[in-house]
Structure formats: structure tokens, C-alpha cells
Computed example of a mutant assay.
Amino acid sequence: MSQLQDNFGRRFHYLRMSVTDVCNFKCGYCLPDGYRPNGKQSFMTLSEIEQLVGAFAEVGTQKIRITGGEPTLRKDFTDIVRAVAANEQVKTIATTTNGYRLQQNAQEWYDAGLRRINVSVDSLDPRMFYQITGENKFDSVMRGIDAALEAGFERVKINAVLLKDLNDKDLPRFLHWIKSTPIDLRFIELMQTGLGEEYFNTHHLAGADIQARLQAEGWQLDQSDVDDGPARNFSHPDYQGRIGLIMPYSPNFCSTCNRLRVSANGKLHLCLFTEQGLDLRDLLQSPAQRPELVERLHAQLRLKKETHFLHQGFTGVTQHLASIGG
């Protein structure tokens, strides 16, 4: 069948696949009270993941990001990477991690087929890192980033959520770091979720403010790449690293949407914010179900909305970002 496409002409070649909603950090913008299971969890098995990847590859998915929670808490994480890498139609395999297990496992994951890695580092001040994440793991995470660079990853990105009155003073420190370090630094504008209204009102910082500051200091907007999605990427001739801004409240943010999400319990989410999700798990039990699964994907894409409605204060059913992988 043809590539997944919605009624607005957007094509979807990127899948964010959550494998667990468990996380061992307590970030204030996501899980301030730590992970609290909602009943007995039953996450997709390795076999179900293989069926899911096969179906998405058949409809044009070329990039798969393994997400969580903290995806590397799965004991079979390396096996999941191998399973995705075994599908030759998937060109890029990535993950997003808090870096907790990165130092010890970077080379093993690379050898299994992982090629891109995003590490969440919300501050380069160890005390602020602890305040935001609830974990005193700054030095360990930074050693993990060094291990990823040494392992040969094609691209190492650092994710930092912009937080007013917390890490907003860290920009000079971040810039100093990427002057001689070839990483991509991603600043992500804080998004409101169902459980985070008060936190959002206190700490939201407009990404446009950071963009204006960067451009005033000589950073230039790069031409968009097909893999960039909604990120606006900036480079500077004096810096080895790049900066990307993800600004969900900016005009036309959704016009370049190229990604879909599947939660750890096998539900398809057309948007991070707008709907309950459609169960796919009943069609992940056998390769013989592939045609029906592919048809279900195409049918759901015809229902995708044009935008996320965050501007109207509508956050959908997403209680916290760990629930469907951010």
C-alpha cells in the first residue's frame, strides 16, 4: 500500500514507538511525584513490536524512535533495537533517554543497530539538574554522552525543556559547551498537559524569545531537512554544534507534522494531545494480520485533525508526556 497520508497532504514516515511508560526520574514538567503505575501494566512484547514495525515499514515508515518513559529500563531494550534494525525498510533507528544507562551500554546499543540518540539534559548546573529531575545523576549522564560520541553515533542530540526561573539562565553555559562539541542541542518549549497546569503557568517560556536572542547573536536558520519535523534548526560559523527549537505554540507548528505515536500498550495516537488512541494490539499477534493492520492505519489517518488546539488551552487526554512517549 502507499505511504500513510492524511487529508491535509501530510505524509508520515516517522514513528515514535513507546516500549514502557515507566521512568526512574521525577522531572517536574512530566512526573514530579515519580512514576506511579495505573494498575498492572502489560506492555507490548518483543513479538508484537516486530509485527508493529513490519506494518509501519510497509506503509513507508523510514525512521523509528524508541521512546518511553525511560525505554532503556526494559531488560530487552537491546533486543528491541535489533528487531527494528532487522527491517531493511527502516533507515534510521533512534531513541530518547535520560542517560541513566548510557555510559555502560552505548557501544552495545550502537552495535545492535541504534544510530541516533537524544539525551535529556535540562541543565548543565548539577544542582539545577537535580532540582528539575529529582535525581543526582548529572555526572553519570554526562559521561554517558561522552560514551555515545566515542561509540560512533551518527547524531547525538541533547534535549532541554525551557523552564522560566529554573534553567533559563543556562543558555550561555549550553552555548559554551557546543562551541567545541559536535552535538545538536534541542530546546523544547514547555507544553501544558492534564496534570501540569500550575507548573506550566509558572515556568512556561516562549521559544520565540530564545529564537530572537540566538538570531541577535548571529545564529542563522538552517534549511529544513525532511527529518526535522517541527524543529527549527540554527547554526553558527563559530560553533561545532547546532541548536534546534521546538515551539508547539508557534504559528503553523502542525503543518510539517510527519510523525505518529504508538504507546507502550499498543495504542496508535495521531497527535500527542488530542485523542484517546486506537488499540492496535489485537492485530499484532500474527503476520497473517498484516493486511488488516495496514488498512486500520490508513483508515485512522483519514481522521487526523489539522492542528493540536493547544492555543485554545485544550491539552487532550494526555496526563503526562511519559504516558505515550512524548
Rank of each mutant, 00 (worst) to 15 (best):
E217I: 10
N252R: 15
G218E: 07
N233Y: 15
Y199F: 14
V226N: 12
A231W: 06
H203N: 07
S255G: 09
S224Y: 11
C254M: 10
P237C: 05
D238W: 09
H203P: 05
L245S: 03
N201I: 08
Y249Q: 07
H203G: 02
L221S: 07
D209T: 07
A212R: 12
R232W: 00
S255W: 08
L245Y: 05
T256K: 05
Q215W: 08
D227R: 13
Q211F: 07
Q215P: 08
F253N: 00
A208C: 12
R261D: 02
I210D: 01
P237G: 09
S250M: 15
R261K: 00
T256S: 15
L214Q: 01
L205G: 05
Q223G: 13
W219C: 02
R259L: 01
D209M: 11
S224H: 13
D209L: 13
L214K: 04
Q220A: 14
D225V: 09
P237N: 06
F234W: 05
C257N: 00
A208F: 11
H203E: 10
R259M: 02
N252Y: 08
G244F: 03
D209P: 00
F253C: 03
L221Q: 11
D225E: 15
G244L: 06
C254R: 00
R232T: 05
T202W: 11
